[in-house]
Amino acid sequence: MRRFEMILPSSVDECVKALATHGAGAKTVAGGTDLLPQMKNGLVKPAVVVDLGGIAALKGVTNGAGLRVGACATARELELHPEVRKRYTALADGAALVGSVQVRNLATVGGNLCNAAPSADMAPPLMALEAEAVIAGPKGERRVPLSAFFTGVRQTVLGADELLVALVMPAPPVPPEAGLYVSGGSYIRHTPRRELDIAVVGVASQVTVQNGRCVKARIALASVAPTPVHATAAERALEGQPLTPERIEQAAGLAVEAAKPISDQRGSADFRRHLVRVLTRRTLTAALARARA
């Protein structure tokens, strides 16, 4: 790595000030699992690196009416968190798939999102769970739905002086408090290896069912477009309908239309379209099964 200075803020305010002072020459680091390889390969050469590790407000997972995930919560924390595993299963699925255990103990949800790779494993589950990004900047806090957070490959709505603080999302309804509503979610990705890999395609589905009919469906796709995307037409096709295998197959076909994949060394566009169909079908089926469980 080339040389750089390090700033070690202990609050969000301090951090935002540092970012404002150093502008585009500064990079924030949390787990470092994306930033350090980029720096080592000379893709980014920041003059200043701001460590988020000393900011308590960015840490932890809080469970209340919904879920608040601090930007510096690690993938491993989410993978093992009892409430996430029980109620936000798609997120637990996605978190458990990042890198290896050595990487998951470092990699943070905020880093996974701010790195804005189309293949980010935690993005589709959070989109399917309708998460919002809580962003701090010089003018205070703002909230952006995660589905509007990504603007391109490795690009987000974050300004150079802004910081992702947390993700907040409503609780998917589960019995008994939701009465007849039940909700379930699932994230499945395809990779040639079982661990230490990057999604060729990833699909997250979250379905809420009432009296045998789907009242809400959220499907989000990774690695098939410049950003993680919703399969909106597929979601609409399911809502108000019973989730029969035929209906699920139809939605899987519609999800393919939301995919605009490229061919690269990880997979061809043809294979990616094929996988969107397969994995949409599988995640919807798994989500439905979890909703019923």
């Binding site: 390090m6 070690l8 680091v29 787990g31 470092g32 699992t33 350090l36 390889p37 690196v49 460590d51 590790g53 290896s100 255990v101 050595q102 990487v103 103990n105 470092l106």
Partner: peptide
């Protein structure tokens, strides 16, 4: 367990 090659020393 962590990959120490991805952690900055001061972290």
């Amino acid at each position: 367990p962590v990959a120490s090659c991805l952690v900055l020393a001061l972290q």
